[in-house]
Structures are given as C-alpha cells and as structure tokens.
Amino acid sequence: MPHLIIEHSNEFNADILMEAVFKGALSSRLFESRAIKVRALPYQHYQVGFKRSAFIHVTLKIISGRTQGQKLGLSEGVIEQLLELGYENVAITAEVVDIDRESYSMALS
C-alpha cells in the first residue's frame, strides 16, 4: 500500500512518470519504498472540451486513517515531482482516495 495509478495522454513516457510519482510518494514519508505500488495507463483516445489536451492524472489510493494534512502533502509531493519533469502545456492533477481499512484484503502467492 499505497496504489498509485497514473492516467495520462499517450505522448508521455510511462517509466519516467512512474519514477516521478514514486519519488513524490516516498517524499511524503508516509510509506516504506517496498510498499509503494505504481502503474500507468496511457490513453490514446481522450478529449478535453473541444480538443485534445495533454494530461497527467494520478489517483493515490491509500488505507483510510491519514489526516487531511498528510493527504495534501502526499498529493502536493507527487505534483511537485511531476512539475520537475519540465513538461509544458499539460494539465497535472492528483487526488487521494481512501480505501476502507475494514474491507481491504490482500494476498501474496
């Protein structure tokens, strides 16, 4: 935990985005490095208004129980790392989503 899901327009290199998002989550000091899971989903088909606009959106799924300040720090840290990549004319967003602690299950096989 956490699960970090990057949705992005297809002109970006997923490996570079994943590294930046990983670093942003790690900088929050809320998680150990081995617990951070990152994946990326490039979109070929998308529309913003009447045109195609570059975007990067990160959903940060974490077990419930963190404070609003911790959540804000996490999303800001991820955004900061993505901004450091120097992309121009791209909408970058992040949201923290609580996973209900009582109903979350995990298995390793």
Rank of each mutant, 00 (worst) to 15 (best):
K23I: 11
K23C: 13
G24I: 06
G24Y: 04
G24F: 04
G24H: 10
A25I: 07
L26Y: 13
L26C: 09
L26F: 07
S27W: 03
S28V: 04
R29T: 11
R29L: 09
L30N: 07
F31I: 07
F31G: 12
E32C: 12
E32I: 06
E32W: 03
E32A: 15
S33V: 13
S33R: 14
R34E: 15
R34A: 14
A35D: 15
I36P: 11
K37R: 12
R39W: 09
A40P: 01
A40S: 15
P42L: 03
Q44L: 14
H45R: 12
Q47V: 13
Q47L: 14
G49P: 10
K51R: 10
R52F: 07
S53F: 10
A54I: 04
I56K: 06
I56N: 04
H57D: 03
V58W: 01
V58Y: 01
T59W: 08
K61W: 05
K61F: 09
K61V: 04
I62T: 11
I62M: 12
I62W: 04
I62C: 08
I63H: 05
I63D: 00
S64L: 07
G65M: 10
G65L: 10
T67D: 06
T67R: 09
Q68L: 13
Q68N: 13
Q68P: 00
G69V: 06
G69M: 03
G69R: 08
Q70H: 06
K71E: 08
L72M: 11
L74A: 04
S75V: 05
E76F: 01
G77Q: 11
V78A: 00
V78N: 00
I79Q: 05
E80F: 12
L82V: 02
L83R: 15
L83G: 00
E84W: 02
L85E: 01
L85Y: 09
Y87M: 10
E88V: 14
A91N: 08
I92T: 00
I92H: 03
A94C: 08
